[in-house]
């Protein structure tokens, strides 16, 4: 149904950041992801779209091995980050997650100050040698998440006291602070109002300058606005993958067409 060679011809080998081959995920007896092959490019926003329960979040969580924390989940196949198999025994999932950051559906700031929230990853991975360097990382990350101007005078206040949109940008800043290579975002705007959504979308577009961003979204408009590549999942299968413009204007698969025109969903 889906031709790997075609993808490789689309993207060109050099820019590939993550390459997945024949990935299967089982939750207990349930076959949640079936035979997914995909190549995700560096410095690009890739959107995963599809109806609820189609496996897009599950696949996203495979990329930084978050599924390891779920006891009944089982993963087969191969996912390579920069050509290195992340499910190899020698790879430490903890280190992998520092390279592949994640932002969740609901903003989940830690019960700490804004400063400590952003400093969390940097401290754990020893990215700063002294306070000045740490301050620099904090400022850079908060600026990167377009939050600096709003919070620079109250860095010691609890992160939970921010508004929903600010909290989500704080979580993005927190992920950015560990200098990841890939940023995974699992429906980052689904708990936000339209204005906050706009701010986060703008931010995603800026983040593309530095990282490869993978975003799972329910909103096709959002996928169209922020992404350059789009992958459509349906019932655990990757149905179609290509340039966002192509997917939305001339889908090749009838299921994709049905979904984007609102007939499945």
């Amino acid at each position: 149904m889906y031709d790997t060679k075609r993808v490789e011809s689309i993207v060109g080998q050099d820019d590939i950041k993550i390459s997945a081959r024949k990935v299967q995920v089982y939750y207990g007896d349930k076959h949640a992801i079936k035979d997914v092959d995909v190549d995700i490019l560096d410095k690009t926003v890739t959107a995963f779209i599809g109806p609820s329960g189609c496996g897009k979040s599950t696949f996203l969580r495979c990329i930084n091995r978050m599924n390891d924390t779920i006891p009944i989940a089982r993963i087969e196949g191969q996912i390579k980050l920069d050509g290195e198999d992340i499910y190899d025994k020698r790879v430490d999932p903890v280190q992998l997650r520092a390279r592949v950051g994640m932002v969740f559906q609901k903003p989940n700031p830690f019960p700490k100050s804004i400063y400590d929230n952003v400093a969390y990853g940097a401290r754990i991975h020893g990215l700063a040698r002294n306070k000045a360097e740490l301050d620099e990382i904090i400022e850079k990350s908060l600026r990167g998440a377009a939050l600096w101007n709003e919070v620079k005078d109250r860095l010691n206040e609890p992160g939970t006291g921010l508004s929903g949109g600010q909290q989500q940008r704080l979580c993005i800043a927190r992920a950015v602070a560990t200098s990841p290579e890939v940023l995974l975002m699992d429906e980052p705007c689904s708990a936000l109002d339209p204005i906050a959504t706009g701010q986060v979308e703008e931010l995603i577009d800026q983040l593309r300058q530095e990282f490869s961003v993978v975003i799972v979204t329910h909103s096709m408009q959002q996928a169209a606005r922020v992404s350059q590549k789009t992958a459509f999942f349906h019932l655990g299968n990757l149905v179609e993958y290509g340039d966002t413009d192509d997917i939305f204007t001339k889908p090749r698969d009838t299921r994709t067409e049905a979904y984007i025109s609102g007939r499945i969903g």
């Binding site: 997650r97 994640m102 932002v103 989940n108 990853g121 979580c171």
Partner: peptide, 15 residues
């Protein structure tokens, strides 16, 4: 303590 706290921490590469 909500699972999202643990996810957030693990997602940043914390043990």
């Amino acid at each position: 303590v909500p699972q999202s706290m643990r996810d957030g921490s693990y997602g940043l590469g914390a043990t």
